[in-house]
Design a protein around this nucleic acid. Structure first.
Lengths: 133, 133
DNA sequence: ATCAATGTTCCAGTTAACTGGAATGTCAAG
DNA sequence: CTTGACATTCCAGTTAACTGGAACATTGAT
């Protein structure tokens, strides 16, 4: 199939498919006589795998690594586990940060609601924001 | 005070202070005869305000807006409330996303732990990641 | 006199994952 | 035969918030 069809089926823009090829994420397909890329279903599978991996929060570089391990005939399970575990830590600590940020923001909003709006004439730019500490 | 001193007191690198001036976030200070920047305490206060605003998750452009409103003699409370409320929404929805991502990752990890590692020889690159859907 | 530290400007690079656009080629339909 | 859709390559731009480095001036201390 040509790139347009693969694009439709995979829901990745053609531009992105070419980009993935450039960075070594997607295998180079064969070419028709006219130079057009000619994909088979394995390309679609790869793109689905890429989508799954992205959904798990992996970076393109990490996905390339997994694919490379496979290409060397190795089983990437162990590496994938490592990546997922690192990612889980990232997500967890980011969750904590955001939770704290949320509480701060709610406190700020509550203050903003409570106070007499016109009493704010300080040199400190904004009484609300300066209460975040 | 010179930029080095302001840098120490504010805990912002001198480079960043100059950058903030470039993008219109920090007022241009007066200059000494030699061309060196000469700051007073208000610069320090502004940097503290900037730090507070960043801590609330505001973008530099948004902080510039707040400062601009102040410079026009207006009270930025209403605008700040708006920004904070938008930010709170962002944080909340990002929290939801991450929470879901965390659950997915935990599910994936549990699967990775449970399964017989050497039974993985598929063409689909990785059985673990392909279970995310 | 010289040396290190600090200051200046200006330009370019970083990160990630694309996206836009120009210039050009190919193909199927009317 | 021309038109429009689709294909190609290649280069550059996007976003955010800096950061690095070159080339140069100034200052304070020895």
């Amino acid at each position: 199939m040509k790139i347009g069809e693969l694009s439709e089926k995979s829901h990745y823009p053609a531009k992105t498919i070419r980009y993935y090829e450039d960075i070594g994420l997607l295998d180079r397909p064969t070419r028709d006589v006219n130079g057009y890329r000619n994909y088979d279903n394995s390309a679609l599978q790869q793109l689905q795998f890429i989508r799954n991996s992205q959904a798990a929060g992996l970076k393109l570089k990490e996905i390339i690594q997994i694919l490379d391990i496979r290409k060397e005939g190795q089983i990437p399970c162990k590496h994938v586990r490592q990546l997922l575990s690192r990612r889980l830590e990232e997500v967890t600590s980011r969750l904590d940060e955001l939770q704290k940020a949320k509480e701060d923001l709610e406190r700020l909003m509550a203050y903003a609601d409570s106070f007499d709006q016109m009493s704010c004439d300080e040199e400190l730019v904004c009484t609300i924001l300066n209460r975040i500490k």
